[in-house]
Design a protein around this nucleic acid. Structure first.
Length: 892
RNA sequence: GGGCACGUAGCUCAGUGGGAGAGCGCUCGCUUCACACGCGAGAGGUCGGUGGUUCGAAACCACCCGUGCCCACCA
């Protein structure tokens, strides 16, 4: 026995903590994960990772998506191996996102702990500190992806703020500006007082809340009054009109009159606008153009004044008047209500349930306010992006997301691009200090091109998603025409969670089409969201988060990968520790099955000390026994199923199908059946069995590799024969996907084995019910058809001593019991100490059940409707079934 | 308000037109010479409800009840 096998013999269980770091190191050293920029994207396979934030650490979503992508990548890398010369390349594009707001907030927080405010440092020093922070902490998540076994191209890690990347961003901005898509406007935006920046519509989260709806009376000049309703009385200070619906008969006379704003005394015109719903409240609406998006539109239509009373810091401005200036919005609300009450202007107060906007970033309540920002018109970019999805050039899986995408795109609105932050891509916009002209250019002008005056760059940075939108091509060197771009763009699939379908996926499609003329990927796979076991959202703040790295430490990366894939489905799922356990069990099972077989093969080989011997075994198994033919037939099936399931993103069935094959077919039946052959072979070498076993194990380990790469790689180091030219670096990660060529679908073997399995199961049940201990060998006589090749296995697995003899007696003895099995019966002869009463009970129950089934089938066949209308094969099937059941009944 | 899902064994989920399944948990038995993270055998289900289509419905349709998610500018 070789030293390695000797060592294997002592390892009775697979220890991920010990093996995984070792395997990972070999992978990283091998260079196998690096894809050479050769060939075309049509030949190659590529995926661009959704770039994790540098602030992040691996959470369940990353772990699931990492498992999904790595399964795809490894499967395709293996499929490519040996498929041509040179083999197609498989690349998983890796990188991280600078994540403007999130990162800035994180670094600000850590500075604050040291008592430093970013404004003390100034912009340049602050961004320097962020870069420093990134050097220290920004790679955590990449290291964690390695723990998961993710086979990204680590040799080329991108970052959305790299110089090259920045050039791409600037070029896109400048072009879109020159084409008139990007413009600057004073517009009402979602202002986040927490980050003190504008944010986009998509970063706003609505929450249902109960507030007080106040009805407030405004006097009209010349007598009379109007009554408006509001949940935000403090914004009344910024009212510049009162509006009614033009078709509202009640208020026709009011239009054109003037209302007097309480507390302030401002004169407000009463205007007519279609927006006002006559049937809501009093049908009279206060108009606050500076603090409500709808009122802003009304204001534009009627050229109303804009009075801003809420400032960017979330406090009331000077325009709110002396009494309120400087108060927080909440305090101002109380003060305004108090003042109105004193004046007797509050007509009614009632609780009111409505949705309130909050910042997804800071958690603070959004203050709509007017601000000078950069925007991008989207309709022109959206049109082709709608078309590619509509036509199927880009396929969204599962396809119920397709409609959601299309509907959003069809109603797309301008995108607020600028953010009042320091960390990010600074806008390539320059203003002349002298003539005030705006210049948008890739290179900063030294002086104003118009008047020669000094220029200053816009202070703002771009929304992070603007740079993310370029990810699939900016990472490959665009706008230069690089070999990388030719080899890997467009990518094959984008795998991501649903929550960034609009934020990111839609924008990548738009930008990809606009700047490369092609969609950035052919398919979008939207994976599940993993919820906490109790169905709540997994989140740190709720305390419901489960740390995948911790789970990897505990159960191994294979277990976590298997578990997550097995959990995933087309909808959200709850985290299932049991599935991870199942994965761990599978890894261990496969390890032990291989270990067992290898140690026996060493014996079979007939020669203890020649490791090369295995290599000289026949490459293709010559299956001559029924169990060999059967397992190879099943192997063919599981290889084909697994491939089809991976390719159709059906990961849970890929994982569970693999589990079933390994557990049930390979271990419970095949290995159990061949054990006597293995035992016999210790005397006489059995190279045919050795070859078959090796063949099956190599194929099984290889087909499991995309899902559980670590344990399979470890096993490959024992199984590889060193002769395969495609066995790159001696690693399974570079070996080829098992072929179904040479594997036959063997229907006869499947029928025979199914019969055997059923018979053994029935027999074991019988033994259990009569209290036959495993050690007790029961003498029996087989009176059934179809066990010509499997009788030996039946005897061994059923712990029987099969005897020949005429029906009805042996040595003058009549059978003491009979057990119905497919194709006949098994007559049990003398056996002491069996609880035959229990067996009789069991038999009676089986009999009753059979009778019931027969009655049901007979009823069906007696039904004229069924016989006439059901398909012929179904009817024939029922007839056959009836016959079989009657035979079984007879036997009982 | 509009849209998309989901409701199957104690738990988490498969199954989507012809004999109710898996993993875990539970019960019983087993140190059977790979694995006790193991092996074998069991118990456990009016497939949310009602009606319809069909020879036949867990599956298809309608409505109802319950749960979740997304989108949306009614103060």
């Amino acid at each position: 026995m070789s030293e390695r096998l000797q060592e294997l013999e002592d390892r009775t269980r697979f220890d991920p903590a010990e093996a995984e770091p070792r395997v990972l190191a070999r992978w990283l050293d091998s260079g196998l994960f690096h894809a050479a920029p050769e060939g075309t994207a049509e030949q190659n396979y590529s995926i661009a990772i959704p770039p994790p934030n540098i602030t992040g650490s691996l959470h369940m979503g990353h772990a699931l998506n990492g498992s999904i992508q790595d399964t795809l990548i490894r499967y395709h890398r293996m499929s490519a191996a040996g498929s041509g010369s040179p083999a197609p390349q498989t690349k998983w594009i890796l990188g991280t996102d600078h994540a403007g707001i999130a990162t800035q907030a994180q670094v600000e927080k850590s500075l604050r702990k040291q008592g430093i405010d970013r404004h003390e440092l100034g912009r340049e020093e602050f961004t320097r500190r962020v870069w420093e922070w990134r050097e220290h902490y920004g790679h955590t998540i990449v290291e964690q992806f390695k723990r998961l076994g993710a086979s990204c191209d680590y040799e080329e890690e991108r970052f959305t703020l790299d110089e090259d990347y920045h050039r791409a961003v600037v070029q896109v901005f400048v072009e879109l500006y020159e084409q008139g898509c990007i413009y600057r406007d004073r517009y009402i935006v979602n202002w986040d007082p927490g980050t003190r920046s504008a944010i986009s519509d998509l970063e706003v989260e609505e929450r249902e809340e109960t507030d007080t709806l106040y009805s407030i009376r405004y006097d009209l000049e010349g007598g009379g009054s109007v009554t408006i309703a509001t949940v935000r009385p403090e914004t009344l200070l910024a009212d510049t009109a009162v509006a009614v619906n033009p078709h509202d008969e009640r208020y026709r006379d009011l239009v054109g009159r003037t209302a007097v704003l309480p507390l302030v005394g401002r004169h407000l015109p009463v205007i007519a606008d279609e927006y006002v719903k006559s049937d809501f409240g009093t049908g009279q609406l206060k108009v606050t153009p500076a603090h409500d998006p709808n009122d802003f539109e009304i204001g534009r239509r009627h050229e109303l004044d804009q009075v801003s009373v809420v400032g960017e810091d979330g406090h009331m401005t000077a325009e709110a008047g002396e009494r309120f200036a400087g108060l927080t919005v909440a305090a101002a609300q109380k003060a305004v209500v108090q003042a109105l009450r004193e004046e007797g202007r509050i007509v009614a107060e009632e609780p009111y349930r409505h949705s309130v906007p909050y910042s997804h970033r800071s958690g603070r309540r959004i203050e709509p306010l007017i601000s000078l920002q950069w925007f991008m018109r989207m309709d022109e970019l959206a049109a082709p992006a709608i078309e590619v999805v509509r036509s199927g050039a880009v396929r969204i899986v599962p396809d119920n997301h397709r409609r959601v995408y299309l509907e959003w795109m069809e109603n797309i609105r301008p995108w607020c691009l600028s953010r009042q932050l320091w960390w990010g891509h600074r806008l390539p916009v320059y203003y002349c200090e002298v003539c005030g002209e705006t210049h948008v250019a890739a290179e900063a002008p030294e002086r104003c091109p118009s008047c020669g005056g000094d220029v200053r760059q816009d202070e703002d940075v771009l929304d992070t998603w603007f740079s993310s939108a370029l990810w699939p091509f900016a990472t490959l060197g665009w706008p230069k025409d690089t070999p990388e771009l030719r080899a890997f763009y467009p990518t094959n699939v984008l795998s991501t969670a649903r929550d960034i379908l609009f934020l990111w996926v839609a924008r990548m499609i738009m930008m990809g089409l606009r700047f490369t003329g092609r969609p950035p990927f052919q398919e979008v796979y939207i994976h599940s969201v993993i919820q906490a076991p109790d169905g709540r959202r997994m989140s740190k703040s709720l305390g419901t988060g489960i740390d995948p790295v911790h789970e990897i430490d505990k159960h191994g990366a294979d277990a976590v990968r298997f578990g997550l894939l097995a959990m995933s489905s087309s909808q959200d799922v709850r985290y299932s520790a049991e599935k991870v356990q199942q994965g761990q069990a599978l890894a261990n099972k496969l390890f032990n099955a291989t270990r067992f077989a290898l140690l026996r093969i060493d014996d079979l080989n007939g020669n203890p000390a020649r490791p090369g011997e295995l290599a000289s075994l026949p490459r293709t198994p010559t299956a001559s026994t029924v169990e060999d033919r059967w397992i190879l037939s099943r192997l063919r099936q599981v290889i084909a199923d697994t491939a089809a399931r991976i390719e159709s993103y059906d990961f849970s069935h890929a994982a569970l199908g693999l589990y079933d094959f390994v557990y049930a077919e390979l271990c419970d039946w095949y290995l159990e059946i061949v054990k006597p052959r293995l035992a016999a072979a210790t005397q006489t070498p059995d190279l045919e069995l050795a070859a078959t076993l090796l063949y099956i194990l190599r194929a099984t380990v290889a087909l499991a590799h995309p899902i559980i790469p670590f344990v399979t790689e470890e096993l490959w180091s024992y199984l590889r024969d060193g002769q395969d030219p495609d066995d790159r670096e001696g690693l399974l990660a570079g070996a080829r996907w098992p072929s179904v060529e040479g594997l036959k679908m063997d229907a006869d073997a499947e029928i025979e084995m199914t019969r055997l399995i059923e018979a053994v199961t029935i027999l074991r049940g019988w033994r259990n019910s009569v209290g036959a201990r495993p050690g007790l060998i029961v003498a029996a006589r087989l009176r059934a058809e179809g066990y010509e090749s499997t009788g030996g296995a039946l005897a061994r697995l059923g712990r029987l001593e099969l005897q020949d003899g005429d029906a009805g007696q042996i040595d003058g003895e009549a059978p003491i019991a009979s057990v119905a099995i497919p194709g006949g019966t098994l007559e049990v002869l003398a056996a002491d100490g069996l609880d035959l009463a229990a067996a009789e009970q069991r038999r009676a129950a089986a009999y009753a059940k059979l009778e019931g089934e027969i009655a049901r089938v007979q009823g069906k066949l007696a039904n004229a409707g069924f016989v006439e209308k059901a398909p012929a094969d179904v009817v024939a099937g029922e007839r056959e079934k009836l016959e079989r059941l009657q035979g079984e009944l007879e036997a009982l």
